[in-house]
Amino acid sequence: MPPAVLVEHVRKEFILRHNRAMGMKTRFLALFHQSKRERREHFLALDDINLRVEPGEALGLLGHNGSGKSTLLQIIAGILEPSQGRVITRGRVAPLIQLGVGFNPELTGFENIFLNASLYGFLNRDIKKRVKDIIEFSELAHFIDTPLKNYSSGMQMRLGFAVAVHLQPDILLADEILAVGDQPFQEKCHARIAELRAQGMTLILVSHSSEQVSKFCDQYVRLDQGRVVEEGRIDKNTPTPSPARS
């Protein structure tokens, strides 16, 4: 059986532009000399990353801030293009990566459910069958006709999570999203993830919590400075090695 997610020799490089503090005279000269205006730095965020996740498996991505975890997740989601290498995904991908992605702050929560679900390829008639369950799960019925710009970040996360997990994704990409809400709501999110995993959903989870990775994942990969420095299977009876400092 082909893998659900295949990452082959992925490399991602960014160009960082450092603007220099300039006086009026220097600013005028900079109009004619690019080198006087800014300094460019090449930053290698990911270097030769190779991953394979089978259908129904769960992979945890660990590492300190700046190690490349979120960049890798965005490449798998198709938000970023790799500088080199390739990524292959099979099935519907639901990325829970950045707050507000796929939402319009001027629309109501109800309208944003349809907008967000349409990005996953669902038609209005399909969304209507799920909208009641989405609203109930999010616990936002009292605010669902309010513009999203009036929602707190936690409320937006609730709505985004509720939409994603009720559209039966084949692959769920989650970047620290399981920390959303209070303890009862987190437990409900965890139960929903476990339910989807039992139905065969593939999960890739970015987390600073080795306990969370141990709970949800079958294998883990640790990144440091854009490279894989450790990987392995997870023994549910043995704690996953703690991530580097955050």
Rank of each mutant, 00 (worst) to 15 (best):
F110R: 15
K149M: 13
I113Q: 08
L205F: 05
S67G: 08
I76L: 06
I15A: 07
R17D: 07
K132P: 00
E230K: 14
F110E: 13
P169G: 08
G102S: 08
N124T: 11
Y220L: 08
V93P: 03
V87L: 14
G121L: 09
V229W: 09
R222G: 03
S214C: 03
Q225K: 15
Q74W: 09
D47A: 04
F137Q: 06
L196E: 05
F185E: 10
D182I: 09
E136P: 01
D133N: 14
V53M: 10
S153D: 15
S35Q: 13
S83G: 08
N150I: 04
V87A: 12
P243A: 04
L29D: 09
L46G: 10
R245Y: 04
M155L: 13
T26C: 00
S118E: 10
E231N: 08
I234H: 01
D218N: 13
C189W: 03
N19K: 13
T71R: 13
L51C: 10
Q183I: 15
G85R: 09
K132V: 08
A198T: 03
D133R: 14
L148H: 05
D48W: 10
A30T: 09
L178Q: 04
M22D: 00
V206L: 06
N112Y: 11
H142D: 14
E41V: 14
R17F: 07
G91T: 03
H42Q: 10
N19H: 15
N65F: 11
M155H: 12
Q168M: 00
T71Y: 12
L172T: 01
L119N: 07
F143T: 01
S118C: 05
Q183L: 15
K215E: 09
E111Y: 13
E54Q: 14
V131G: 04
L16S: 11
Q84W: 10
A198S: 12
K36N: 00
L16D: 12
C189N: 05
K128V: 11
L31D: 00
S246G: 02
Q74P: 10
V165I: 15
L205N: 02
G78P: 07
I15E: 14
S35F: 00
V101Y: 04
A174K: 05
G160Q: 07
F122L: 15
E111F: 13
E176T: 04
D47V: 03
A94R: 09
G226F: 06
L31H: 06
R52S: 15
H190D: 05
L119C: 09
S67Y: 04
I177V: 15
K128E: 15
E41R: 13
E211C: 01
I113H: 07
N112G: 10
P169S: 09
N150D: 12
K188F: 08
S118H: 05
F28L: 15
A141T: 08
R158L: 11
D224P: 00
L223Q: 01
N124Q: 14
V213R: 01
N104V: 09
S35W: 05
E230A: 15
K129V: 10
N124P: 09
